[in-house]
């Protein structure tokens, strides 16, 4: 049954990829410190599980999980407007602990016993790990395409502006509060979707599946891969989810290796292994450019023309350098 084992890992990887991408929208693109994504992952997981147990079709339950989680996300978005960055980080950590406690206590979430889900059917086929893997990969591909479209839209420009400087963003017409809340809604709704798939693929969930350590894992995926890119969280999710399997021979040292890796990463490469500033990524891009030359942007053309017209770049700036920034 080597294949079944492989598919089980691949399904997990796909689900965590989706989760990492959802966090990336909030923290990577909108720049909001979110340390409690597992709480929302959990809300989606329990919502979908409770719904299908009561006879709701699986796909409909996933949709409902997104909506419910998104509503909670909107709530957090509203709260986030009142908080400064560090306060937001701690508040989201707090929300994670409180939600885990709530999952562990409420009757509807099964308390300490957790919830068992039935394997759902899609088109008359009872889903196994392979099906979950395919379903999640399809969703991940769609999400990546949507994110890519976002980055080329004014919506993406608004998030990038907010991430860089909220005061500047306001000065050219961006309603920062509105976009911040939207980013929270979209990000958490996606994490709820990932949760809905997770609870059905696992067949059983309990509060420990949504503990703070899970949030940290997802943050690590994004940071190790590279926040604010699409490739980063995907790469990070694959690496971190399969690392325990690779390190199986050194089971006792797994957590140590993992945490050591994390510290070394943020110390020497805080932009992530595949972030825009990473030497590894630059090398990859350089190799790729040998075969496919980069299409020049309008900015490149303007700069080249200006430089060839006389003023070498930086000549003025040398003289202009002055005083405090």
């Amino acid at each position: 049954m080597a294949n079944a084992y492989l598919f089980s890992i691949m399904a997990t990887v796909a689900i965590f990829t989706l989760l990492a991408l959802s966090l990336n929208i909030i923290t990577g693109y909108a720049g909001q410190a979110m340390m409690g994504i597992a709480a929302f992952f959990g809300i989606g997981a329990y919502t979908a599980a409770i719904l299908t147990t009561n006879g709701t079709p699986f796909l409909l339950a996933l949709l409902a999980a997104m909506v419910v989680t998104g509503v909670f996300g909107a709530l957090l978005g509203v709260i986030s407007l009142r908080l400064q960055e560090d306060f937001l980080a701690i508040t989201t950590i707090g929300i994670n602990f409180v939600m885990a406690a709530v999952f562990n206590t409420l009757k509807i979430t099964g308390g300490t016993l957790g919830l068992t889900t039935k394997k759902p059917e899609i088109f008359g086929v009872r889903m196994n790990n392979f099906h979950f893997f395919i379903l999640t990969v399809i969703i991940v591909v769609i999400v990546c395409l949507l994110i890519n479209k976002m980055r080329k839209s004014w919506f993406g420009m608004a998030l990038a502006s907010i991430e860089n400087d909220p005061a500047a963003a306001r000065s050219f017409g961006i309603n920062v509060s509105k976009y911040q809340i939207l980013a929270f809604i979209i990000g958490t709704a996606l994490s709820g979707l990932a949760g809905g798939i997770y609870s059905h693929r696992m067949g059983f969930i309990s509060a420990t599946d949504f503990a703070f350590t899970v949030s940290i894992q997802v943050v690590s995926m994004c940071v190790i891969g590279g926040l604010g890119t699409i490739r980063g969280p995907i790469f990070g999710a694959i690496l971190i989810t399969s690392l325990p399997e690779i390190l199986r021979f050194a089971d006792n040292y797994r957590a140590l290796v993992y945490s050591l890796l994390l510290v070394i990463m943020v110390r020497f490469m805080p932009g992530g292994l595949l972030g825009d500033d990473s030497p590894i990524w630059k090398l990859i891009v350089k190799g790729y450019r040998k075969f496919v030359p980069r299409k020049k942007t309008r900015a490149d053309l303007i700069a080249e023309e200006a430089v060839s017209a006389g003023a070498a770049p930086g000549t003025q700036s040398v003289k202009q350098e002055g005083g405090l920034a």
């Binding site: 942007t297 900015a299 490149d300 303007i302 700069a303 023309e305 200006a306 430089v307 003023a311 070498a312 770049p313 003025q316 700036s317 040398v318 202009q320 350098e321 002055g322 005083g323 920034a325």
Partner: peptide
């Protein structure tokens, strides 16, 4: 124009 394609973090105050 001459700095159009430079990142804002890489240009001078002027």
């Amino acid at each position: 124009a001459e700095v159009a394609n430079k990142k804002a973090s890489d240009v001078s105050l002027g």
